[in-house]
Nucleic acid binder design. Structure first.
Length: 241
DNA sequence: AAACCATTCAACCGCCGAACG
DNA sequence: ACGTTCGGCGGTTGAATGGTT
């Protein structure tokens, strides 16, 4: 267990504490959280300081209720990623992981879980939703496509050829911000088909590969103000090597 | 007006992986 | 190789607030 120094203040932050923390980070920048309480003259633990800054004091934090498009995005991303709140929040400018998590727990979970239950009763196994659970944060050095460039390129070429055979040309992306995601889900299904037809691997294997491939990239940009555009551009670049 | 209940959300806790000595 | 420290994450808690009886 990580030791929290005795006598450290807990609970709600006062305006004075907020000002001290803000000043400290404005002068010293983010990071080095273990030094922040000392530098700011705060009787708080590093985690408390970090959390207060990230969830409340940081500039450009959007407060207030979530918009329809934001909610839509949360639902879609949650379907894809599961409870990866920091990743989901990275797609919502000005929203924090804590905000998204709270919103999900208070507003969406109640609404969506009953629907999911109904769907489960009605539909067979093939319709089940599987959230991709990435092994987060870093690339694995053992990833095949990092180990062997030639193998990866060969696989991609095979995929591209099969892709042409299997699928009609995709309709051009619309700019409404939603269909973009719909297309992505479609792509995942197509990729799944292709992968299965290439090596005959089972569903679990596919999820494992897809998860490591896509989401290791996603997680690599989580720190700070992550930009998900980069993630998916990276992903596309990968397949277009 | 008061008591009770439900909801919201800021903050804490424990765990994990990376970095470093 | 191992132990320690740090940053970061998701799950959970509980105080504050709002609504209902």
């Amino acid at each position: 267990m990580e030791g929290v120094p005795l006598g450290v203040r807990k609970g709600a932050w006062t305006e004075e504490e907020d000002n001290l923390l803000k000043k400290c980070i404005e002068t010293n920048g983010e990071g080095k959280w273990h030094q922040v309480p000392f530098k700011a003259g705060l009787n708080r633990c590093r985690k408390s300081c970090r959390l207060r800054w990230l969830n409340y004091l940081r500039p450009n934090i959007k407060r207030g209720s979530f918009g329809v498009d934001e909610v839509d995005l949360i639902v879609r991303l949650h379907k894809l990623l599961g409870n990866r709140w920091s990743l989901i929040a990275g797609r919502l400018p000005g929203r924090t992981a804590n905000d998204v998590k709270n919103y999900w727990n208070t507003h969406l979970q109640k609404k969506l879980i009953p629907q999911i239950e109904v769907v489960k009763v009605k539909t067979p196994r093939m319709m089940e939703t599987k959230a991709i659970r990435p092994r987060p944060r870093t690339f694995s050095k053992n990833l095949i496509w990092l180990k062997s460039k030639t193998t990866a390129i060969a696989n991609i070429e095979t995929r591209n050829n099969l892709f042409k055979q299997l699928s009609p040309p995709l309709s051009p992306p619309r700019d409404d911000g939603i269909s973009w995601w719909e297309n992505m889900f479609v792509d995942l299904e197509i990729n799944k088909e292709i992968t299965l037809s290439i090596d005959g691997s089972n569903e679990e294997k596919w999820h494992e590969k897809e998860t490591q491939g896509i989401l290791a990239i996603g997680d690599s940009s989580v720190q700070g103000e992550s930009d998900w555009n980069d993630i998916f551009i990276d992903k596309m670049d990968l397949w277009d090597l």
